[in-house]
Nucleic acid binder design. Structure first.
Lengths: 242, 242
DNA sequence: TTAAAAATGTGACCTGTATCACTGCATAAA
DNA sequence: TTTATGCAGTGATACAGGTCACATTTTTAA
């Protein structure tokens, strides 16, 4: 289901969606002047992707830049045997495809909505052209590139851990860092991924993830509330498992 | 053993080492004008690190930028149990520590010379100051950041492979891509790492690496010549193992 | 509200690879 | 040359976690 609407916040031709993704609200582009914004907005398309819908697939030509306006998506690799390896989970403000300025490339992994997600896409050639002339944007992209390197290295840390306990502990800490919220004394994780996906983000099977989470909650490190909520009870002991 | 000499190529105060690392020869800095080069050269120290010598360690303050002039080094993480995970192998022209422009940080992993290696270091604050004003340098850094993301993602691909065969095949292809040379019809790998390090770059043990390499050579995919040379006999079949 | 589908939990089993312990080889030092 | 030291090869063994099969619970759709 594709839904393209004219933005109802600004009065320019920004191709926003329900106001959420008006390009004047995209942090990456906030330093541009009106001329540049107008120029870019010609190539902007904003739409909602339903949970489970592909945003792009491995091998797709990377000629569009994706900016997450709301919701969450995962970037992952599919194996022949059906397994998958999640690389990144992106939320509001994150963008994909801006690091290869002026370089042709294709997406190496799949992008898929984890929940109903609004995404703006812009023509990469147009974006590149403007970005390369704007030191502010270049620096912002570099800043994000650095974050992404760190993120990928974190994933390597997780995958190279000796045992499943350590992988799960590392995953939880990563998720806390990215999506954790404070509720009173404790830290709460409201997950948008299921056990299978947690496993594939940590490099273990669904079953092992289930067992380890139960084990952690028996140890009093966490408390499981339903399938989509984890309350962290003992951060220090969790860190000891690394 | 520290050896600092004045560059014998250029006549400026560039702090080069045996001429090899004269900062006028560093690709990253090639777009700077003479004023900027002179400015940066104040903070340049070039020295040789002997094989096995640490260049930096986990936790070291990242207040210097490292540029490899000649030789090879590895970036790796040490585990409590003595195992290590290699992240990157860098050679001539590669640099470390330039991605976090104007941001304080510390090195997350160890850097160690794989062979006798000449390295120039420059004061990061001075470099940042100049780099951030030079769009050409910023773009060069971004380009390298993109490579590094790809590199880290490659490593994830390797580590997330199902079985050891696939890990070894991926490692070989990676090494070919980075360091492979053509000799006649076949592609040759002159390694600067031992079996243990190959294992730690692929996410398997030394023994498994040994066994798999022998297995591959029995299959006729490769030919082992001593411990530091591998000749690729059948690239296509190697790729099939992914 | 009910039916169907998807996600999770759980026991039993199996297997690939880590680990250990040792031998042989090659390179460097004495 | 001989001796020492580190690296590589190899067989035996153990076990963590993958895989399978099915029960149970939760979510979604009808």
């Amino acid at each position: 289901m594709i839904s393209i609407k004219t933005c109802n916040i600004c009065n320019s031709n920004c191709q926003g969606f329900d106001g959420v993704s008006c390009i004047h609200n995209i942090p990456l582009l906030s330093s541009l002047n009106n001329n540049e914004l107008n120029d870019i907005s010609q190539g902007v398309v904003t739409r909602e992707f339903k949970k489970g819908e592909y945003i792009f697939k491995t091998g797709d030509k990377a000629d569009r830049l994706y900016i997450v306006c709301s919701g969450k998506m995962k970037i992952y690799n599919s194996f022949a045997d059906g397994r998958e390896q999640i690389f990144y989970i992106y939320g509001s403000g994150d963008f994909i495809g801006a690091f290869n300025l002026l370089k042709e490339d294709e997406y190496k992994y799949n992008g898929e909505a984890l929940e109903d997600t609004v995404i703006s896409t812009l023509t990469k050639s147009k974006f590149d052209e403007i970005a390369i002339k704007s030191p502010t944007i270049t620096l912002k992209i570099l800043e994000k590139a650095y974050e992404r390197i760190r993120h990928a290295e974190d994933l390597v840390d997780r995958l190279s851990s000796t045992n499943a306990n350590s992988k799960v502990a590392r995953l939880l800490l990563k998720l806390i860092q990215s999506f954790g919220t404070k509720e009173g004394n404790s830290i709460v994780l409201n997950l948008s991924i299921n056990r299978e996906e947690m496993g594939s983000y940590a490099g273990i099977s669904r079953e092992t993830m289930t067992r380890k989470l139960i084990y952690f909650s028996e140890l009093g490190l966490i408390k499981l509330e339903g399938n989509k909520k984890i309350i962290i009870k003992n951060m220090d002991k969790l860190k000891e498992l690394l």
